[in-house]
Design a protein around this nucleic acid. Structure first.
Lengths: 230, 230
DNA sequence: CCGAGATATGACAGGGATGTGACAATTTTC
DNA sequence: GAAAATTGTCACATCCCTGTCATATCTCGG
């Protein structure tokens, strides 16, 4: 695993020219880069940095790409990463061997930069299961729809289902002022006969939980209208 | 999602000869097979069967492979699957477009059966590690699909088959919240008529066994939604 | 400063969702 | 074929969530 924001790509190749070319293009595409020039360095770098994607040249001094792949897969950090083998050979035997050793993908020289980047992106996409439901973020508050989790800063908050949906509504449209009626529709569902004052109570509870984690109240009361986040 | 044991591969191609060839070889490799002969059928089949891997021909009648890919990705079941585009075109533009549309992998005709199977396996490995015998680890809990063993710390745990599959489901996607219905599909199998409350009982049993080995409860109850690991 | 309307908050009871032990049916093991 | 293990269901206990009310506090126009 790597830092939250930009994915880290580890380039493993013994030819400086190749490394420079790849680095330049991947940086331009918005990735963070690390490099290693042989298999042993690569294994160490994986353990230390925990890259998201590893571009592994087939022909390497000291430790072959295939063997490096095997060793990387044996480490905890390497198991999480996506390995793309890069090779000049086009024989199918190698390709199969590479994939069966634990590589996730295989790309053959000569390749275009566009394809390489597309492959890196595709591998990243499938690496991150969180991609299904976008996490909502507002300042230091974070809501993950898939895992049903809410965090403020680094603290994990516990919300009941109703308050969870309520917060989700607020965070989906920061700044939007919701009337109590609109919130009842959105959070409680249509055709429901509930006192509009109930919204106040839940907003209050949500505020209490949010503020218990520190920081100021992110929910604004709009007198005569309703509530809004921010 | 699919039945517990053997991975399900959906073959989408309009040429019967192709389908027959692929079916034969993939069955021989130990997969379950389903087929569709155009994009629309494919989208329906995905929703109904929840395959693990989808082999999607680029050229399809009615709905192009690219568009089918997009639609499949828009469904809940399709988001969980691995899509491999199969194409006669070798132009890089198509390849990039395929990967960017949401395909996980790309294979070009003519391909060898060995490579195809290797790619299917490679995609499964990251999608459903247990199906390829990879050990799963979450904190101090370790599950080995091959030897059918579960350990917490250094202690060996004994689980019944159902609880074993249940734990495997949780560990394959740490953090994911499973509804009781989804767990019934994944662990018990589709088309099975069992009280959803039964899930509670098995989660309880699993918890008891896990906690008996020391450490806190790794399974989180999400009220109104289901359960998740971590 | 006052008062009326609007909002905040604590308390509470009811209900729904979940946890859990018991048990019989079924399968597996020896 | 008998003993042991596994499994699905039920009943009951428990806990958490939730809607409502009563009261306190606040806001704003006078």
């Amino acid at each position: 695993m790597s830092d939250a924001d930009t994915p880290l790509v580890l380039i493993v190749d013994d030819e400086p020219a190749q490394v420079a070319l790849l680095s330049y293009n991947l940086k331009a595409a918005g990735f963070r880069i690390a490099t290693a020039k042989d298999g042993e360095e690569a294994v160490l770098a994986v353990a230390e940095l925990g890259p998201d994607v590893i571009l592994l040249d087939w022909m390497l001094p000291r430790l072959s790409g295939l063997e490096a792949c095997r060793q990387i897969r044996a480490t905890p950090e390497g198991r999480e990463a996506s390995i793309i083998m890069v090779s000049a050979r086009s024989e199918e035997g190698d390709r199969v061997r590479g994939l069966d050793t634990g590589a996730d993908d295989y790309i053959i020289k000569p390749y275009s930069v566009a394809e390489l980047i597309a492959r890196v992106r595709a591998n990243l996409r499938r690496l991150r299961p969180t991609s299904t439901g976008q996490a909502l973020q507002y300042n230091d508050i974070r809501l993950e729809p898939d895992s049903y989790r809410v965090m403020r800063g680094s603290e994990n908050l516990h919300l009941g289902p109703t308050e969870f949906r309520l917060l989700a509504a607020f965070m989906e449209r920061p700044g939007k002022v919701w009337t109590r009626e609109a919130l009842l529709d959105r959070v409680w569902g249509r055709d429901i006969y509930i006192d509009t004052r109930t919204v106040d109570v839940h907003v209050g509870r949500l505020r209490k939980t949010l503020c218990a984690a520190g920081g100021d109240d992110p929910i604004r009361t709009v007198r005569g209208a309703g509530y809004a986040m921010g």
